[in-house]
């Protein structure tokens, strides 16, 4: 697997199209569509965070739902137990995610690819088990009654579905910008270099562990943001949010979308979530279908939908 699709121009084009699509759906859709758009956008943010470390740092995480959960629970507890306004709670959640990831990252970032998967899976499941029994976090019932940020000073009411969707789109654009900048910046290129030839990066004096730990915590911070937004969208959290299947879905999204392309992660999140949603309405064995589809993509479409678009563009002669 080439594992990285680096094409800033196509990345930007696809991003613009996807954002326009989401805006159109948001404006012309009904209550449910708007909720669905917001959900996809939040999943896209999560997928981008996974995509960033998977492609740039070669760190495929199967425990990233942990950071989704950290962001969600931190927002809930800070706003409910400590009375911090949800808008600020979002920022604090991101910081908490960043910090915890830095601590964990110190132990695990230098692990070889498959061991990284094993260890993150184990850590994620540990967090899940802990959440289930923690009284502070509401155990298996989760937490309810989380408010959305109050932006009335901007004359904006986030409790309106259409506005909240736009709010998530706003965050997605910020995240996209941040990650594509980091990807092109020296740190991102160094991460890419580590994936291509880690020995040589050492030999030219690169700070391998530090780069990777920074990338890991940035990614965790973004996943925490997604968690924070998710809990604002729904108003409640259930510990299921931290289950391994959530991390797994994120992984499926980035593989289907085309790993390492950023826009591909958004594309993958949209397609997988729509398929999943539609399938689960018709059949109750949609996981079987998703599993098969995933295996076929890994076997025969290594660059996912992004690769498909790239090759179509080439054929059309652009």
């Amino acid at each position: 697997m080439r594992a990285v699709n680096y094409n800033p121009k196509l990345r930007f084009q696809i991003m613009i199209i996807l954002i326009l699509l989401s805006i159109i759906f948001n404006i012309f859709g009904g209550y449910f569509t708007r909720f669905f758009v917001a959900e996809i956008i939040i999943l896209s943010i999560f997928a981008i965070s996974l995509d960033f470390i998977a492609s740039r740092g070669g760190m495929v995480s199967l425990g990233h739902a942990m950071f989704l959960g950290i962001g969600a629970y931190a927002t809930a507890i800070l706003s409910i137990n400590y009375g911090i306004p949800p808008f600020y709670a979002t920022f604090f959640s991101i910081l908490i995610g960043l910090f915890i990831a830095l601590l964990i990252g110190y132990f695990i970032v230098l692990l070889d690819g498959i061991f990284f998967i094993m260890v993150t899976l184990a850590l994620g499941e540990m967090f899940h088990a802990w959440v289930f029994t923690s009284e502070l976090l509401g155990g298996s019932d989760g937490i309810t009654g989380i408010m959305r940020p109050d932006l009335s000073f901007l004359k904006i009411d986030l409790n309106t579905p259409i506005i909240f969707s736009f709010y998530t789109i706003f965050w997605l654009i910020i995240v996209y910008n941040l990650i594509s900048r980091i990807t092109d910046a020296p740190l991102g290129r160094n991460l890419d270099a580590i994936r291509q030839n880690s020995e040589r990066v050492s030999a030219i004096g690169g700070y391998k562990k530090t780069y990777k730990a920074i990338a890991f915590s940035i990614s965790a911070g973004i996943a925490s943001l997604a968690g924070s937004l998710y809990v604002q969208l729904n108003g409640f959290i259930s510990p299921e949010l931290t289950h391994w299947t959530v991390s797994g879905e994120g992984l499926i999204m980035i593989i289907v979308g085309g790993i390492g392309s950023i826009s591909g992660a958004i594309l993958g999140a949209s397609v997988v979530h729509i398929i999943q949603h539609e399938l689960s309405n018709i059949i109750n064995w949609w996981m079987l279908v998703i599993g098969f589809g995933f295996i076929l993509v890994v076997l025969f479409m290594k660059d996912g939908l992004w690769g498909l678009i790239e090759s179509i563009k080439k054929k059309l002669g652009y």
């Binding site: 697997m1 495929v60 690819g113 064995w285 949609w286 079987l288 599993g291």
Partner: peptide, 18 residues
């Protein structure tokens, strides 16, 4: 590629479960 292998076995989990 090792990553490809591990992803494939990951897909099998879904199939097994359902």
């Amino acid at each position: 590629d090792p990553m490809k292998q591990v992803l494939l076995t990951f897909g099998l989990i879904y199939i097994g479960l359902d």
